[in-house]
């Protein structure tokens, strides 16, 4: 196996283009290294971008936050900018894996891995983030189009995530995040949910709901969002939403939980976050 350490993004992309399938890109390494150890990936070339400091940043402009691909989850978790403008992501980052992992894992790695339970994906869905992908040319993909299936994303072999852009949320919007796992640290989500609601008193102007671990990929709950938007939020409507969510998701059974439990919890968590945002 060869090890390549490109000096900049351009150089990295060039190498990826050159090696295609034979190469594995590594940054924080918290997904790639266990895969290497288990021989689940057997690349001929490792392209290490972990030292590209220019890709690790959290910046804000008037309307958006820009998060560099190599920003670690710890940096997300402790960032004042994120806490202020994307608190959902702050919550999720604080509960991802464990502190040692968070110091290595990057936002791009968490997304590119394409896990249906990816912890940062769920708030980013609710926040309508944009994934900036750099390949031959730069393109911007809304996060809801980024995931394709279990461990599959739109990323091509010669592309990588460069940045994640989050529109600053309306400070009057309400948000809530909830992760249900089997323990309080080092837990893979059994179900996770993030919501962002813009409300005028009890009238819902906008609803964005992200879910993890209830489908082959992290998803938005469009039908429920539609049921809520431009509606007066009544007990009855919320109950109907909690029923509808079961039809909108397609969880699997695994060692952590059955699909029935996940379905029920998707509804329970929806009820909970709704309660929180409507209070």
């Amino acid at each position: 196996m060869e090890y390549l350490r490109p000096q900049n993004l351009k150089n990295a992309l060039h190498l990826m283009k050159q090696w295609k399938k034979k190469a594995t890109l590594i940054a924080g390494g918290t997904n790639v290294i266990p895969d290497l150890r288990a021989r689940a990936v057997r690349p001929e070339v490792l392209i290490d971008i972990s030292h590209l400091k220019s890709l690790a940043y959290i910046k804000e402009d008037k309307r958006k936050i820009h998060i560099g691909a190599l920003t670690t989850v710890s940096e997300l978790a402790s960032s004042k900018i994120i806490e202020k403008w994307a608190p959902l992501l702050s919550h999720a980052a604080n509960q991802l894996g464990n502190p040692l992992v968070r110091n290595r894992a990057t936002i791009a790695g968490n997304l590119a891995d394409g896990s249906p339970a990816a912890d940062t994906a769920v708030p980013l869905l609710a926040l309508e983030a944009i994934v900036v992908i750099q390949g031959g040319k730069e393109k911007q993909v809304p996060i809801h189009q980024f995931f394709v299936g279990p461990n599959q994303t739109v990323l091509k072999r010669d592309e990588m995530i460069k940045e994640v852009i989050i529109p600053k949320f309306n400070p009057n919007a309400k948000t809530a995040y909830f992760k249900l796992g089997l323990r309080n640290s080092m837990a893979v989500s059994v179900v996770s949910i993030a919501v962002l609601m813009e409300m005028e008193k009890t009238f819902c102007k906008k609803a964005r709901i992200g879910y993890g671990a209830v489908a082959p990929k992290p998803i938005r709950a469009y039908r429920v969002e539609e049921m809520l938007e431009n509606k007066e939020l009544t007990e009855r409507l919320l109950r109907a939403c909690c029923e509808t969510i079961g039809k909108e998701i397609s969880p699997i059974s695994d060692i952590r939980a059955s699909k029935e439990y996940r379905t029920e919890m998707a509804s329970v968590l929806l009820k909970r976050v709704m309660k929180r945002v409507t209070q």
Binding site: N98, L182, R183, N184, S185, M186, V188, I255
Partner: peptide, 16 residues
Amino acid sequence: TMTPSFSEYLLPTSMD
């Protein structure tokens, strides 16, 4: 064995 590692075999952590 469906719980081959400490990712699946869950010991209590300091937060539990």
